[in-house]
């Protein structure tokens, strides 16, 4: 099991100047797990995902992604991140955006893959339009294509359902289940208990920078109960 950990965090903390966002996070995520991370705003979910993605280094503790501390280029090749921001250039077309990332990842069949992914996220017809003109939902779908185009082994998603209509949201949940069933490791931060648990094999609650609950796959009711207990105990 230890060799197969995609993410191994030991006492990881992250501080921005004087504000400590994550503290003493000890966590192991194995290959093929689909982890849903719940927690109120400002709990440290986004920071956790950015640490896992290698966008920042921990202030304390040890963090290994695919067994490597401080993800280098080879590790970054195996990670895909969907964040709040889409990472897309508004003045490039959808196709140009995807092609740029496909080429940055040195994908051999870049043009073909871009065509495939535009199809998959139902943007084939909008492919020649600049992203500036996209709706929030279209942009989110393209952001997903951008993050998945290199078929990463670890997929990190930060509130991916925000801004999607019901149909697109269902579609996204299906894609995530598909990734999980294909053995990809998925970590998704969300407020939505039902959607999160629908794709997950394991649930976490993060509160005030700590992992406050790590208990397998609960029912929605159990999770709601635990979530209320944790957040209200702190407020009292």
């Amino acid at each position: 099991m230890s060799g197969a950990a995609v993410i191994a965090a030991a006492d990881v903390s992250k501080a921005f100047g004087r504000s400590v966002v994550l503290r003493d996070v000890t966590l192991r995520i194995g290959v093929g797990e689909a982890v849903a991370v719940f927690g109120p705003n400002g709990a440290g979910k986004s920071t956790m995902l950015r640490l896992f993605a290698g966008l920042m280094a921990p202030s304390g503790g040890r963090l290994r992604t695919f067994g490597v501390a401080g993800p280098d280029a080879t590790v970054r090749r195996r990670i895909g991140l969907v964040a709040h921001q889409s990472f897309l250039y508004p003045d490039l077309t959808a196709r140009e955006n995807l092609l740029f990332y496909a080429r940055m990842f040195d994908l051999p069949d870049a043009v073909e893959r871009v065509r495939l992914w535009l199809d998959r996220v139902a943007l084939a017809e909008a492919g020649a339009r600049p992203v500036r003109l996209f709706s929030r939902g279209m942009e989110q779908r393209l952001a997903l294509a951008r993050a998945l185009i290199h078929d990463p082994a670890l997929v990190l998603l930060d509130e991916p359902w925000t801004g999607l209509d019901a149909a697109s949201a269902d579609w996204l949940a299906e894609r995530l289940c598909e990734l999980r069933d294909r053995g990809r490791t998925v970590v998704v931060a969300t407020h939505d208990f039902e959607r999160g648990l629908g794709v997950a094999t394991r649930a976490l609650i993060v509160h005030r920078g700590r992992v406050a609950w790590d208990g397998g796959l609960p029912t929605v009711a159990t999770l709601e109960e635990a979530y209320r207990r944790i957040t209200e105990a702190a407020a009292a």
Binding site: A73, T74, A83, Q85, S86, F87, Y89, P90, F105, D106
Partner: peptide
Amino acid sequence: LLERENGAWYGLLLCPID
């Protein structure tokens, strides 16, 4: 500055490049 819109800068940092 043109990397700032939509956080494209972070997209760049995620790429497997030196």
